[in-house]
Each structure stands twice: as structure tokens, then as C-alpha cells.
Amino acid sequence: MRAVITVLGKDKIGIIFNITSVLAKYSVNILDISQTIMQDFFSMVMIVDIENSTVIFEELQSELEKKGIEIGLSARIQHEDIFNSMHQV
């Protein structure tokens, strides 16, 4: 299963490090990353493969959320289908 991780908030040092360290810890493979910074606002979208994840989805989700709160940003993970279905005929 593939999922989309989005991280949004004020830019600071170490965002990608913090998020990817969670992913590496649970064997989540990153397929693609895109990030932009507009003024001070940081946004990152990551496509990940969670097929070989060592934890269940909910746990990964709560770990990412926790990490997000720790570094003062919002971090969420969602099943990719929601994005595919919403914007394509």
C-alpha cells in the first residue's frame, strides 16, 4: 500500500531529518519527495510505500503525528487513494 505524507508549518532546521528518521525506524520506503517554502511556510509532500512497514498503519500515523507536534509542525499520513479519486475523472 502506498500512502501520502504531508508536513506543513513554519520552516525550521531538521524537518526532513525528523520525519524521515521515523520512516526509517519502521522500514517505510520513500518513493518521492517534493517540498516548497513560500515565505516562511514549509510544505512537504512525500509518497511512501508502507508494504514492508514494521508497524500497523495507525501506529505509524500516531508516531508521525507525535513527531510533528514535537517539532511544531503538522504531519499526517493518508492512503493515496483519496488523492487519486478526488481529482481524477
Binding site: 501520502v4 504531508t6 506543513l8 517534493s34 510544505s43 509532500v45 499526517r76 483519496i82 488523492f83 481529482h87
Partner: peptide, 12 residues
């Protein structure tokens, strides 16, 4: 194949 803008739009 992903349009990142649409992903952010969905989140918004």
C-alpha cells in the same frame, strides 16, 4: 503522476 498542488488542495 502526482500533482502536489492537488494533494495540498485536498488537505486544505
Amino acid at each position: 503522476m502526482y500533482n502536489y498542488e492537488t494533494i495540498l488542495k485536498t488537505i486544505s
